[in-house]
Design a binder for these strands. Sequence first.
RNA 1: UCCGCAAUAGCUCAAUGGUAGAGCAAACGGCUGUUAACCGUUCGGUUCUAGGUUCGAGUCCUAGUUGCGGAG
Length: 349
Amino acid sequence: MKLKDFGKKNIFMPDATRGAIRFLTTEQLEQTGTKAVVTNTLHLLMNIGVENLYKLGGIKKMMNWNGLLLTDSGGFQVFSLIHTGKWKGKVHENGATFKSPTTGQIYELTPESSIDIQMSIGSDILVTLDDCRNTGISRKEAEISVQRTLNWAERCKNHFEKKYGGTRKSGKLLSCVVQGSNYLDLREKCAKGLVNIGFDGYNFGGFVVDKEGNLVVDEMSVVVENTPKDKFKYAMGVGKPEDIRKCSKLGYTVFDTVLVTRNARHGTLYSSDINGEVLRIMNAEYSVDERPIDSNCDCYTCRNFNRAYVHHLLKAGEATGMTLATIHNLRYYQRLIDELNLNANALNL
RNA sequence: UCCGCAAUAGCUCAAUGGUAGAGCAAACGGCUGUUAACCGUUCGGUUCUAGGUUCGAGUCCUAGUUGCGGAG
């Protein structure tokens, strides 16, 4: 797939946060039909470092990955690790300053450095640094988050243009993140502000489900309605298969979520044979089940092994169980995306 | 045969004479821009047996049973 067509059709990108889909080789990943992956700016910065990434030719070369690569800006980590107090650090107007809990090293993530790191990673689709917050924050906090996100997005764009020549010269795409929590007018304000700056794609940021686990459809709709039709919409972190179907109807085409791979490792598999799609492979009922995980699936796992085997491997803590489970879940998501694209084509004809 | 040590949840072990707990296993659930092969809930007991002392015994005493070690 060519970069200019990114997001024209539905696409699911699994999260290879530190440059790998856990328990899979790049070859195994390719065999699931995956066309693009997401890596994380902050984690690669701390694990490999900008200079080494640059010297080594970027993470795609290291991974031997020929597909597309989207890099997340680190905004989510600023939220999930620093705002929540799990890591020591401060969020300020210039970005975030924090201390590695393992090495003690001090890191400074700014809008400009985030772009630089993403370029050294060798990203195809970059994401602006944003001030991500939890749902249920006060209006005042949401306003600060939106203002900061807009400010940082503009700085990212300027830096991307001046230092790298923007989309035209670099050949890369720059997407931005819409914040505003559950305040619809703030979502609209943020979206419009970002459109004024101008980006290749618009990402729905923050939390995509409420406390009950329901997709925040109203917020997501506002973002679609206030961003250009010819630019891709990326539903960051979405999600369950049913939520991807819903988002696709709203106009989002780009998806990523940790659920598909993390659930696989934790024994929650997806199967069209099961009412509700969820098959908890570790449960006792599968201990002697000789059927494949999904009778409609063409993945390596389903073609070669039965439920009892995957059940046994995961129960026994064998890493191969995680591999087989991850392969299946990834294939399930790719087939879900294929189906959405088929349906979209049928509507257009 | 004698001497010593032990016996508590399915397993490995805690518990001043004062409400018998933990880890693992089991059953089930959760996970949404990954600090997560993680987290949570539940299930789980004639404390080897029979007596005794005591207001009260898993704990102290007596006898037995089983296991482990040593002596002969």
